[in-house]
């Protein structure tokens, strides 16, 4: 599976995890994803915005126009209560999945 495909399947939990820390706007999220993954993830706008709007439609995040620290008006996204519940569920799934994969891959390597 390519890195792009891996990112596609992980976009929602990545966004929810970031937004669970604080509300952010689109460009800020892209920078944050890149910074926190040491440049490994280079999320494109064509992936980010549809994902954010889909999460908003499903009530997992809330979009709100407000002033950024720079004074510019930006559309911020904040995680909702349902979003936090979904994040918790995706976290559990991810830990179980990665643990199982690691067990097999690590075993085969040793």
């Amino acid at each position: 599976m390519s890195e792009r495909e891996l990112l596609k399947g992980s976009t929602d939990p990545l966004l929810l995890a970031l937004l669970s820390e604080r509300p952010m706007y689109g460009y800020e999220i892209l920078r944050e994803v890149e910074r926190r993954s040491d440049g490994y993830f280079n999320m494109k706008e064509g992936t980010l915005y549809p994902a954010l709007h889909r999460l908003e439609r499903d009530g997992l995040v809330e979009g709100l126009w407000r002033n950024a620290p720079s004074g510019q008006y930006r559309r911020y996204y904040a995680i909702s209560k349902r979003g936090l519940q979904r994040l918790e569920q995706r976290r559990r799934e991810w830990f179980n999945f990665s643990r199982a994969v690691n067990l097999i891959i690590a075993d085969s390597a040793s």
Partner: peptide, 21 residues
């Protein structure tokens, strides 16, 4: 250039915003 095709992104967003859960 880095943004890609804004029209495609806008169309995709329009569809998502129009579609109810």
């Amino acid at each position: 250039r880095a943004f890609g095709n804004p029209r495609a992104v806008a169309t995709q967003l329009e569809r998502i915003r129009n579609q109810g859960s």
